[in-house]
């Protein structure tokens, strides 16, 4: 089991102020606005889930926070520092595992330590993280040999070993079977609780969003923006089949359905019981 003992690296707060990012549209004339004037604040150590249909700018938002892309306008802040480029403080697990094909699983997982010159000091952690993601038997295999789920777990371990203050997860559990997925969810939660890392998890799975998050950010496309944020005030550890969980799940489905078909208000009972509290998108903490 991985290490709660190394203290340090508490999570950092994030502030995204009016960030806009556009790309050249395929016709090369118009601009495709991937993220439109988005404002979002995340408290230090908060767990955020981001849900929304394909193409609504979830990955774009994470890349901006990671510092891999620069917004057209607006600002991003982590703690008291403006984000100007990538840093090991902000880890990102990509939608594709993107393992280095020339390195074995264990060397892929080490690569963050090697890059920062910490391998000598932290070598024992490599084995701990290999065990965490259950790849002991494949430690010396090349990515070529891994299934999609194994590759994703390797990518997760590679980001976790750096103990970032902010961890950005772009559907990292998407390719896993239901059982492994639930186990990895609990491991991620355990790491989060142990280190109070700030987490942003993109997912298409509403159950996963509710199970993991303090707050759920719902995004919509054309242009990509934050539609609303929903605070999940269930006690942890959460029961996936508790009545409150299921009720919240139904309400979010209704809400997504609503946002998907503007004007239609089939089941407008949100917020009635206090579990679901829709908030304005530009809410600040």
């Amino acid at each position: 089991m991985v290490m709660e003992n190394q203290a340090s690296n508490e999570g950092s707060a994030l502030r995204i102020l009016d960030a806009t990012k556009s790309f050249p549209a395929p016709d090369n004339v118009a601009r495709n606005v991937a993220l439109n004037a988005t404002t979002l604040s995340v408290a230090a150590g908060e767990f955020i889930s981001i849900i929304g249909p394909s193409g609504c700018g979830k990955s774009t938002l994470l890349r901006l926070i990671a510092g891999l892309d620069v917004p057209d306008s607006g600002e991003l802040w982590v703690g008291n520092d403006r984000i100007t480029g990538p840093s090991a403080e902000r880890g990102l697990v990509f939608q594709d595992p993107n393992l280095f094909p020339w390195l074995t699983v264990s060397r892929n997982i080490q690569s963050g330590l090697v890059a920062r010159g910490l391998l000598q000091r932290k070598r024992p952690e490599v084995d701990e993280f290999i065990r965490l993601v259950g790849l002991e038997k494949f430690a010396h295999a090349y990515p070529h040999h891994l299934s999609g789920g194994m590759a994703q777990r390797t990518a997760l371990a590679r980001a976790l070993i750096n103990h970032p203050r902010v961890l950005l997860l772009d559907e990292p559990l998407g390719a896993l079977d239901a059982f492994t997925r639930m186990r990895m969810q609990d491991e991620v939660l355990r790491l989060w609780q142990a280190r109070r890392t700030t987490m942003l998890l993109v997912t298409h799975d509403i159950d996963e969003a509710i199970y993991m998050a303090d707050r759920i950010v719902v995004m919509t496309p054309h242009p990509g923006r934050v539609e609303r944020t929903i605070t999940v005030s269930l006690d942890r550890p959460r029961q996936r089949n508790s009545p409150e969980f299921l009720r919240l799940r139904g309400e979010i489905l209704d809400l997504l359905h609503l946002t998907g078909n503007a004007g239609e208000s089939a089941n407008g009972k949100s917020g009635k019981n206090g579990l679901l509290e829709p908030e304005p998108a530009a809410q600040s903490l």
């Binding site: 990671a66 891999l68 990538p86 840093s87 990509f94 993107n98 690569s111 090697v114 890059a115 920062r116």
Partner: peptide
């Protein structure tokens, strides 16, 4: 592949690492 370089950057890679441990092996 740009994504290999992106991954390495988010892992805290220096330029030396990007050239010798990512670009050259790739």
């Amino acid at each position: 592949r740009a994504s290999y370089l992106d991954v390495a950057r988010t892992l805290g890679a220096s330029r030396w690492y990007l050239i010798f441990r990512v670009a050259i092996p790739a």
